[in-house]
Design a protein around this nucleic acid. Structure first.
Lengths: 276, 276
DNA sequence: AGGACACTTACGTGGCGTCAACGTGC
DNA sequence: CGCACGTTGACGCCACGTAAGTGTCC
């Protein structure tokens, strides 16, 4: 309307377009570089020109970023071949809820530490450390709750008492699970082959962690067999924030692991399968 | 007791020492590199040897890291020349509480978005964006509450109504404050000179943001004068999560800025505006 | 003498910020 | 012609993980 340059449709220079969505020009460069948001036109000399039609896309990106998705996830979500947005939102909400719980326990720990371990300008480091450790073990007890089934936990706590596990020890276990799951998540999201050596190594660690607490108990071992035989069986072993990405990937990897190591452990001698 | 190698005192190899504190060897390397934790001895061939006396230090680091301090902050806290631990803990607790509030609002936003904007496999992006924006503006309204005094906020909301500010607009202001404060924090923690050009540029942005909402109102302008005249006056303008580091630094920088630009401003204030 | 350790060097991660050196547009 | 804008390229941040290639200890 302003008689400025609307012979076709409004085209924006980077800084104009950036302001419309509240991002910087550098961000536009970066998104362009990633292929996340390509400007709909260029001048002959390589200048980026954004159109009104580009705005919704950018707004979607900004919105999803605010929700806490990574750019990689956003790319998949917007490419309409990834998982549905609804599922992703639910997952993200649960992940954030977990983060919130973690934050809560840390805040609680600080509060306790303030009243107990720090007086004036001297610090009782030993008391401090104990407080933190307790909270840490407690919040990782929460993880155990989520990762092990009801009956598995009973056996676990029985063993913990019998073998006199310390809070430190338990914290270590929780840490290992967190670490392993994170690795699996990264591997899965980078599209690693579940049959490859990297994934198989992860599978081995996974089984080790699981058998570490079954202590060779045959009842639980049976459950493990079911685990990588039937992808649906994982619901009996795991509960939440194990997201689909992780559980699907590890299920595949464990199945392959079980097949390749079949002779030594089970009756199931399934034929080989080639993956992509 | 084991007659192993206790002629002097127990010396640990990296992996042994690392396990005692639940960290990796790489972490020990890294801390050594940073000067955060130097092993108390070396073999002739450059191997690190940690003693029992090194353990408390490492445990302190790990503990503080769990609390959420960065390694840079930990270094200052342990060097006993930084701020007292008590103050740092309080600050960190408040910072985390703020993060938690943010998380809460994001979770809330997702929940709303799930019920309202996403149905099946189609997404109402426009509704989605509005929900997020509202929550965002709301949580940044919270920031405004913290950064502006009571009376200042009254004037602000009056102007907001009078000039018909959108939620988007308000969100931008909140963003700008967050951004600016972050920059100031970084500058302060890197030991930048408050009188240097970088800090003075920050001061200018700071004043602009403040005057942007006073709209030249003389009552508030007076408050601003007091602000960089009297370091204690900032309590009347700011409230929380503005930590000491930031407020002390910006107070210094603003004072210097006020001195160097003294002649041109005084109390009158000609309507010089070159804003967009 | 072999295997488990150690060492240093250097790149990868995420999401841009921030120069630097140079070309374009109004 | 000036100057605000644009471009690509590269490094910085944080706290390490993860090799790669080589030396040392038990």
């Amino acid at each position: 309307m302003k008689s400025h340059s609307d012979r076709q449709q409004a085209l924006y220079q980077p800084h104009q377009f950036a302001r419309k969505a509240g991002v910087t020009v550098r961000t536009l460069h970066f998104y362009d570089h990633l292929g996340l948001l390509k400007p709909s036109d260029h001048t002959g000399s390589g200048f980026r020109l954004y159109s009104e039609a580009d705005l919704p896309r950018l707004q979607q990106i900004v919105t999803l970023k605010f929700i806490g998705f990574s750019l990689r996830e956003i790319r998949r979500l917007l490419s309409s071949k990834g998982p549905s947005l609804a599922a992703a939102l639910k997952l993200q909400r649960m992940t954030l809820a977990e983060k919130r719980r973690q934050l809560d326990s840390v805040i609680e720990a600080i509060a306790k530490a303030e009243t107990v371990a720090v007086s004036g300008n001297t610090t009782n480091w030993e008391a401090f450390r104990k407080i933190i450790q307790e909270i840490q073990a407690q919040s990782q007890g929460h993880w155990l709750k989520d990762y092990y089934s009801e009956e598995a936990r009973k056996l676990l706590s029985a063993r913990a008492k019998a073998e006199n596990w310390t809070a430190e020890h338990q914290a270590k276990v929780g840490q290992e699970w967190q670490d392993l799951i994170q690795r699996v998540r990264r591997a899965a999201s980078r599209g690693v082959d579940p049959g490859g050596s990297a994934a198989q190594a992860l599978s081995e660690r996974w089984l080790k962690l699981m058998t570490a607490f079954t202590g060779g108990n045959p009842a639980i071992e049976e459950g493990l067999e079911k685990l990588y035989a039937d992808p649906n069986a994982r619901r009996t072993v795991f509960r939440m924030p194990l997201d689909e990405i992780v559980s699907v990937f590890i299920a595949k990897a464990l199945r392959i692991y079980g097949e390749t190591h079949a002779g030594s452990r089970s009756k199931a001698g399934a034929p080989e399968e080639e993956k992509k």
